[in-house]
Design a protein around this nucleic acid. Structure first.
Lengths: 197, 197
DNA sequence: TAGATTGTTAATCGATTAACAATC
DNA sequence: TAGATTGTTAATCGATTAACAATC
């Protein structure tokens, strides 16, 4: 029944640090430099980094390579995470071909739908999941089918669901759901923009 | 320079209430009922609703129709918000055809890219924006071009940017950026799922 | 009336920021 | 040494939750 509203904010910032660290060309880097580049507070950066590493040195800062390794390890990016997509419409297709997951150990290994020769049929879902040790499912089906797809994924042993439908899924306690409600995100942008005018 | 990390959480819940209210078939509804259905606290629901409406009545609850009207008005969903997409790759295409925006007054009126006959050319961006009173831009170009596209959008009078690149955009203070970093979202799901095991 | 429900004030919790000693 | 920088403790801020009086 957990809908992770209370995503720990650190977990969102660590990948940002990683992105930045992978991009720059220096041996060492200070919290101030990172903070300035990402528009964050330097103390916050330091605290975040202490959580995963704690190997900074006064006057010098952090060794870039260590930091990359430590963040990757903490977040689990050093391991392969296999995911499948259910629903091969336009959005499903876009995610299936999305390039940005590589640095995070994420691999989308298959897509499922009904009556679509290009991808696997949803009837073979469980078979595929158990045979390939799949832990993550991405739901990109229409709202009407979202809950039943979620139920099925859980039956098949999925542990984490990335939910692009606008339905709040009912799931058992041990399953993690990350809701990615695009309409909501956009409407927050609209509200904040109007507030500012 | 504002990257709205501190999205007010209420702004994310109000659209959820709206979704739910549009779905149910009752005259009136209590905070308890809403809370149970959306897995939230009832006090939280009541507080959120007080912010936009404050017309609940003891013993009865809230009139569904009033609530819908009040939330819509507060969030600005009663007005039309025109947006354009820059970058007509797979993701841009998916968003361009996304059905879920309708209830929020959001309309994606055009897409732009370079050397693509199916959509408008980016050279005509400003022309189009000023001629059609466009306030919102959606960036779905590769990382390398994201900042330059943002700059251009701002030149053309855009007030809010929905950024699907993984770059942190540098923008003036009065511009609102909503970052939608898909890889980050997914990696948070992975981390939280692993934590739970 | 009794009970369901709202709305509000106070308490709690968590996350961010400020202050500052420790270190190289 | 002086200055840059870390790491940590305390203070602040904001959001959530608990408690409870007011209302129909």
């Amino acid at each position: 029944m957990i809908q992770n509203c209370k995503t720990k904010k650190v977990y969102e910032r660590l990948p940002m640090y990683l992105d930045y660290l992978n991009k720059i060309d220096r041996e060492s880097v200070s919290s101030t430099i990172i903070a300035n580049n990402l528009n964050l507070g330097e103390v916050q950066v330091r605290k975040d980094l202490a959580l995963v590493s704690g190997k900074g040195r006064p006057k010098i800062g952090y060794l870039r390579k260590n930091l990359i390794k430590d963040i990757s390890k903490f977040m689990g990016f050093d391991q392969k995470h296999k995911a499948i997509i259910i629903g091969y419409g336009k959005l499903g297709r876009a995610l299936y071909n999305f390039k940005g997951f590589e640095n995070f150990g994420i691999e989308i290994v298959a897509a499922f739908d009904i009556n679509n020769k290009d991808v696997l049929d949803i009837n073979h879902l469980c078979e595929y999941c158990s045979g390939n040790d799949i832990k993550f499912g991405i739901i990109t089906v229409p709202n009407e089918s979202a809950q039943s797809v979620a139920d099925k994924l859980i039956q098949c042993g999925i542990k984490g669901i990335w939910n692009f439908s606008s339905i709040r899924l009912q799931v058992p306690n041990e399953i993690i759901v990350q809701n990615e409600n695009l309409a909501t995100s956009f409407s927050v942008l609209i509200k904040e923009t109007e507030d500012r005018q």
